[in-house]
């Protein structure tokens, strides 16, 4: 796998750059913290309740749908590469696959998973 080595080198340098900039933020600039400055930005009013509370379940539904559909989409890619060699057999496989993809899509659509108020 020698062709991966340059990509890893870029990764390492990018990591060094990111960390260096983050460390530089401690050195550069004035440090004059006040109570108001460190408080969460709330458009000027006192904070009423703490953040990091529960959030709408719709986001969780979207996350689960993503996992299902993205794994399926990722599985299409090897099939796509080999489509020229597989010919009609590949098309049939893709049709079966698309059927499996579309049925849950229609189901969650009818269940209202894509309706945001």
């Amino acid at each position: 796998m020698p062709e991966y080595v340059p990509a890893l080198i870029l990764m390492g340098l990018a990591f060094l750059f990111a960390v260096a900039v983050m460390l530089a933020t401690f050195v550069l600039g004035p440090k004059r913290p006040t109570h108001e400055k460190l408080a969460p930005y709330e458009c000027g009013i006192e904070e009423v309740e703490a953040p990091r509370q529960r959030f709408p379940v719709k986001y969780l539904v979207t996350g689960m749908l993503f996992i299902i559909f993205d794994v399926e989409a990722a599985s299409v890619i090897p099939l796509a590469i080999l489509m020229r060699q597989l010919k009609v057999m590949g098309l049939v496989e893709l049709l079966i696959f698309a059927f499996i993809l579309i049925v849950p899509l229609v189901y969650v659509w009818r269940k209202g998973a894509f309706t945001w108020e």
């Binding site: 750059f17 990111a18 960390v19 600039g29 408080a39 953040p51």
Partner: peptide, 27 residues
């Protein structure tokens, strides 16, 4: 500019987040 670390922030994650963003973009 002054680099503010908010009192309510969880500082390690708060500092890592921008680094992750730019690391991923460059990579």
């Amino acid at each position: 500019k002054e680099h503010i670390l908010p009192a309510k922030a969880s500082s390690f994650v708060f500092l890592m987040a921008p680094a992750i963003s730019v690391f991923v973009a460059l990579t």
